[in-house]
Nucleic acid binder design. Structure first.
Lengths: 212, 212
DNA sequence: CACATACGGAACGCTTGAGTTTCGGAACTA
DNA sequence: TAGTTCCGAAACTCAAGCGTTCCGTATGTG
């Protein structure tokens, strides 16, 4: 019996006015918007309340501190990365990283990512959250590449992590530092060049046991 | 006559105790150290003064505000990127980016870069500074690749910016997000894979008019 | 020497922002 | 209706940090 989750009947509700169910979302959205606009250092609870159209007490009734609010807001950005299986490395990797690149490309999301990267360097909890985001996609990518190796599509000596970094790296670099345009074809071009490099390094691997 | 730089004889010095010539460096160093340690949001002038072994008034005698101090401190990180000419793209690019990768790899410098990237999103002056850093190296890289094309070492349809991003991207991505180790060979491996990809894309370009 | 400017250190004024409390009112249960 | 909990808004307390000022002292010029 770890937690008495719903010990009371569902029909029984606490007396008094129920919480505005829309407030949570409005507050979290306002938080993320403001982080993107004015940065983490410029974020104030008063501004969040004003933007969300909410009293400050309403925020503190839901989260104990500004940090807790921020953490939950960032956590809502979590998304289960796709585990693609298109049949080719190229297709799989494109599907896996498309959403991530979109996030870098989008003005608001991009700024958010940069802010969080900086904050994670100081806050262990945020660092852990960031690590989960990154690692989940990375694990999926490793699976894709290993499957490709098993299929004979790639040579067995592929530096998996390097390949993944080469595909995402350009978009990340442009988002964080160079501020060059992150166009939709950036992922494709990077991917094709890397795949060409892999093909050149281990050209025409023996594809003998092709059961398909 | 743009500026009356040294209108007075060098022998003439203002009366009174001269400024401690070592203080400037100590203050700027303390500033950068603290940014790397506690982040920009955690940076306080009092802490800088304490770390530099200096009174707060000494800081404000030199710079009018915390922001001005920070800007100058960051500007000291500027370094003229090398303009290598080793004879091969591979050698040139390695020489060009070695220092940059080192900066990502170093704990202190890496944190500093992340902090500045976030700050640049809010402060136009810092953004301009960052842009200078990046663009200078980028221009040098573009020259290297164009020379390689002229030599016939690379095909004429190389996406110059993409190639540069592919080389730096992995280290940047690891520094900002994935926090995987940035080993000294990361640059070489990325570079070789990209060059292999370029060779595969436009293999054995026609080298007919070789005058050398 | 007088004078001027610098030094480190400490105190001070002032603003900002986190978190709390209060208020009149609204929405729900019993 | 009575009681409870929520609401937005505003006022409040309190701590932190920027920038200034003053002190006693050190180091330069004339």
């Amino acid at each position: 019996m770890p937690v008495a989750a719903t010990s009371e009947p569902i029909t029984t509700r606490r007396a008094g006015r129920p919480r505005d169910p829309g407030a949570d979302g409005a507050i979290l959205r306002a938080t993320l918007d403001l982080v993107a606009e004015v940065g983490l250092s410029g974020l104030t609870v008063d501004a969040v309340a004003a933007r969300a159209g909410v009293g400050k007490a309403t925020i503190y009734r839901r989260w104990p501190s500004k940090e807790a609010l921020l953490f939950v807001a960032v956590a809502t950005l979590s998304e289960e990365p796709p585990v693609p299986d298109t049949g080719s490395v190229r297709g799989d990797l494109m599907e896996l990283f498309a959403g991530m690149i979109d996030r870098f490309a989008d003005e608001r999301s991009g700024r958010l990512v940069v802010e969080m990267a900086a904050a994670a360097a100081q806050d262990p909890a945020l660092l852990e959250l960031q690590r989960e985001f990154v690692d989940r996609r990375r694990r999926s990518g490793r699976g894709i590449l290993r499957r490709a190796v098993a299929r004979g599509e790639l040579g067995p000596d592929v530096d998996v992590d390097l390949v993944l970094d080469l595909i995402v790296g350009p978009a990340a670099y442009r988002c964080f530092l160079s501020h060059q345009p992150i166009t939709p074809d950036l992922l494709v071009r990077a991917l094709d060049l890397v795949l060409a490099g892999l093909a050149g390094t281990a050209p025409e691997v023996d594809r003998s046991p092709g059961p398909g």
